[in-house]
Computed example of a mutant assay.
Amino acid sequence: MTGLFAGLLDDAAIFPPGNAPVPDAVAAYRGRRSWPLVGPFICSLPRWEELRGTLTAGSPLPVALTVPGGAQDVPAALARARAEPRVELAALEVPASAETLDDLVKAADPHVLTYVELPWADVTAATVAALADAGLRLKVRTGGLVATAFPDERQLARVLVTAVQGGVPFKLTAGLHDPIRHRDPATGFEHHGFVNVLLATARVLDGGDVVEALADQDGVRVARAVAGIDDTLAERIRHHFVSFGTCSVTEPVDGLLRLGLLPEDPR
């Protein structure tokens, strides 16, 4: 079961709403790099020099570099990453739209893992096919600081089905600290659960009800269904749903322990 969650959590501690200072976030990341659930550290290109100021000798820091300026800034991002031996470039994450996707395809380096962040409405069979043809991956936003940043279960289900059927691996970002779908009592925002997303991806693969899997707020029922996933299906799920960015790594781990989905505390 642990394999279903291996490398699932990309550390986005410096992004809202966490907003951890870069030195603190890097130090914390290094302290938990050995946790099997933790993926790369996420940094944005505008904060690259802040990140460099924290780097020390030793093992390179695995970094997923977000490029908010889009395709035009990809060459600069690649040049900076390649000039810094204390960083291991795990991936680029670049926003685009259906209209600008061709520009990003041209700017991308085929030797660098690249996630293309598309708006939900732009995740279509055509755009996913273009990503697949170019060897690019999909990134989708599942939350934020306003209600409109959260897709509902039908919108997210359509994204998952389109990505899986199109053969394009995807990652998600924002709003997924908790394993189970819930309404935040402070904001009123309806958050997706990352365990719900794992189950929904399984449903795409096995022909089940994807919307129902995303909408279910019964943690016991969702956890029971996920606990029944065998290793073969788990591998297929994670081939598609690669990871999600979270400004808290401890909250997702706490949630999985609470649901009994981890055999032991990885910390």
Rank of each mutant, 00 (worst) to 15 (best):
A13D: 01
L51A: 02
T148M: 06
D178E: 13
R158M: 08
I180R: 01
T201P: 12
V204E: 01
D216S: 13
D230C: 04
A157R: 00
L61S: 04
P252C: 08
R52L: 12
P68N: 11
R258G: 14
P46M: 07
A57S: 15
K139C: 14
Y115N: 12
L256Q: 04
D231P: 07
R203N: 15
L8H: 07
F150H: 10
A13L: 05
I180P: 01
G193T: 01
E212G: 14
D216Q: 05
R224K: 15
R47K: 13
V112P: 02
T173N: 05
D73H: 02
G208K: 08
D254L: 14
D178L: 14
T124P: 08
R30G: 04
G175A: 11
A147Q: 15
P17L: 11
E84F: 01
L262S: 12
T100W: 00
L176E: 00
P17A: 07
R224A: 15
R267K: 10
L78F: 00
A227V: 04
S59H: 12
G69I: 10
D24V: 10
A202F: 10
P21I: 11
R32A: 03
L262T: 09
G207F: 14
P23A: 10
D231E: 15
A132F: 12
T187W: 02
A202Q: 13
T124D: 12
L101I: 05
A76R: 15
P17G: 10
T127G: 00
E190Y: 09
S44M: 09
G3Q: 13
R221V: 14
P110D: 14
G188Q: 05
L156S: 01
V22R: 01
P36Q: 10
A134M: 02
L65N: 04
P23V: 13
E50C: 07
L138G: 02
L160Y: 04
P75Y: 03
L92K: 02
V74D: 02
F41G: 06
A71V: 05
A215E: 08
E49F: 10
A64F: 03
V105G: 11
G245R: 12
D102F: 05
A134R: 02
C247S: 09
E212H: 12
T250A: 09
V74C: 03
A79C: 09
D109F: 05
K171Q: 07
L256C: 03
A213S: 09
L55W: 04
F244C: 03
S44A: 14
W35L: 11
T2Q: 09
D265Y: 08
P60R: 13
Q165K: 14
D218H: 06
A126W: 07
T56A: 15
R183W: 14
D102S: 15
Y115S: 15
P95Q: 00
L4H: 05
G166H: 08
P185N: 15
